[in-house]
Write a protein that binds this DNA or RNA. Structure first.
Length: 331
DNA sequence: AAAGTCCGCAACCGCAAATGA
DNA sequence: ATCATTTGCGGTTGCGGACTT
């Protein structure tokens, strides 16, 4: 199984890595004559390869419209959403990413995205939160942390940038949030706020003004978060009402949503809110997880912050109806 | 510096679907 | 309608470079 050693020759046909010369011959031939029958091509072009090998080399590597280089965040989001909707249909996914091949997407999924989702506590197969029973041992502390992460989520901050979170703490909170969802713990935002405002949380962490919280936040920041929360929630409420009445939100940045589906974007506005795809979360590139920058807690204008990592993922995994949206796009 | 390990990617294989005779 | 051939797809593997010990 798999690729045979380079320069292997079977039935007189060469296998293994292509040489620049072979590439040149293949490109020349296709540019002149088109590929026609792949089976006949190698003989006509003078290549000692099977047709299948030529087709693969052309479609995955030599085609002039192939986009090389790293996947953008938009592309990542698209892949994840489409994968959630259709599974390992790499060619279907590739058809929505111009210049990307199914093979490239498959590789990218297997080497990057799968791991990324796992790190976030999301099952890459089902796209649902994974449960890790080991974590239940520390449930009390975790619940406290959950309240804290909930607060941040509801406060429209990017978790990774709102506070100086060490990457492992962030990963734990992410996992925790997913777990809370699975367990069905219904901690409302206000409950979280009350919890944070109450003595138990602060006592629990021996919190003094300006002492660091376990997550790197200070009591002062916490207080700020609390005071901002009411305004934020009020503005959210207003946004929801606005959306309910199908009025475009004033925030022009809302258009800056990172998904591009030529066939569907034009009609997206006509899709009822409940059937729209979840706004995609930032996937917290590892390089960003340890970033030392804090954002201004008063700044809620950042469009991407309208849906935080967990909230968006939660929406994404909770609402199966949304899968149909992506499926529709593909089909 | 050398050896061992890890990781990403190109390319292979087998099977299924599509197409043509 | 059936069979043979071709094409396309998804899963898997080996190579080689990067990284670690």
């Amino acid at each position: 199984m798999g690729r045979l050693p380079s320069n292997n020759v079977k039935n007189g046909l060469k296998k293994g890595p292509w040489t620049p010369e072979e590439d040149r011959v293949l490109i020349d031939y296709i540019q002149r004559h088109g590929h026609g029958s792949w089976r006949a091509l190698p003989k006509l072009a003078g290549l000692n390869r099977c047709g299948k090998s030529c087709r693969l080399r052309w479609t995955n590597y030599l085609r002039p419209d192939i986009k090389r280089g790293r996947f953008s965040e938009e592309e990542e989001h698209t892949i994840i959403n489409l994968h959630a909707a259709v599974g390992n249909k790499w060619s279907a996914i590739a058809s929505h990413l111009p210049g990307r091949t199914d093979n490239e997407i498959k590789n990218f999924w297997n080497t990057h995205l799968k791991k990324k989702l796992l790190q976030m506590g999301i099952d890459p197969v089902t796209h649902r939160p994974k449960t890790d029973l080991n974590i239940l041992a520390n449930l009390p502390q975790l619940l406290a942390a959950a309240n804290f992460s909930n607060l941040i989520m509801m406060s429209n901050f990017h978790l990774d940038s709102a506070l100086m979170l060490p990457s492992d703490a962030l990963a734990k909170i992410q996992l925790l949030h997913n777990m809370i969802k699975v367990l069905g713990t219904s901690t409302t935002t206000m409950e979280a706020m009350n919890f944070l405002a109450g003595p138990s949380f602060r006592d629990n962490y021996h919190l003094q003004e300006n002492n660091n919280l376990p997550f790197g936040a200070t009591a002062h920041e916490l207080t700020q978060l609390q005071s901002n929360f009411v305004n934020i929630e009020a503005s959210q409420h207003q946004s929801e009402l606005s959306e309910y009445h199908h009025q475009p939100l004033k925030d022009s940045n809302n258009n800056n949503n990172n998904h591009q589906f030529p066939s569907s974007t034009s009609s997206a506005a006509n899709i009822p809110p409940s059937n729209r795809p979840a706004q995609l979360p930032a996937l917290l590139p590892a390089s960003n997880q340890t970033k030392n920058n804090k954002i201004n807690p008063n700044d809620i204008s950042n469009p991407s912050s309208t849906s935080t990592t967990f909230e968006a993922w939660g929406d994404l995994v909770d609402d199966e109806a949304r899968d149909s949206f992506w499926r529709d796009i593909i089909e």
